[in-house]
Amino acid sequence: MAKTTAMNKPAMKILIAGVGGQGIVYLSNIIVEAAMLAGIPVSVSEIHGLSQRGGVVTSGIGLGEHCTGFIGKAGVDFLIGLEPLETQRCLTFLHKNSSVIFGNHRILPYSVNAQMAAYPDVNLFVSYLKEQCKEVIYIQNFPENMDAVLYNIFLLGRASQMKDFPIKTLKMEEAINAVVAGYHKEKTLNAFNQGLNFELKKQSV
């Protein structure tokens, strides 16, 4: 729930969750830049000690005065999940008014691979989320031929089309232009726009 701060500006927390290597910090960089461009106070907290070794990475973004990037229970207003299991692991941070977008790019942890544990039932999780949260977008299939490294940007694109996303699309595009260097810029903008224009009807859950 967006609350009012002492300065009467809405505070909001965004959480990006996934696995090391999925571009979580990269995504938060773009959001931070967009917030700066939009004049929104911003603060980020991330733990990436062993991120490159396939561990869990989360990045919390606080928008508004006196709002840190630290995340508490039921404290996330907007969740962007780059991996289903890691999205599910963030469940305690969600609340009834949260918006969630996540993609079905599964990265199996060792315990699942070695058949010591089962990967959670994603469809079951999606229907639960839809029951519980304000708006839930689940990308079951990413566009064919899209490089997996761009899934994060695609999700960000689709996220910025959602009702409660706090930053205007124009600012997001501006931010990508500012953050992304060289020849990656075009690919990134393209993936962002593909996400932005993605129709959900094409897929069934």
Partner: peptide, 25 residues
Amino acid sequence: KNKNIPLENSEKFLDKLPPRPPTLC
């Protein structure tokens, strides 16, 4: 009164989630 309303019965979706320890690349 200021807090967000948490999701109901989230425990069942959090139980037994496989951990994801870091691993050699």
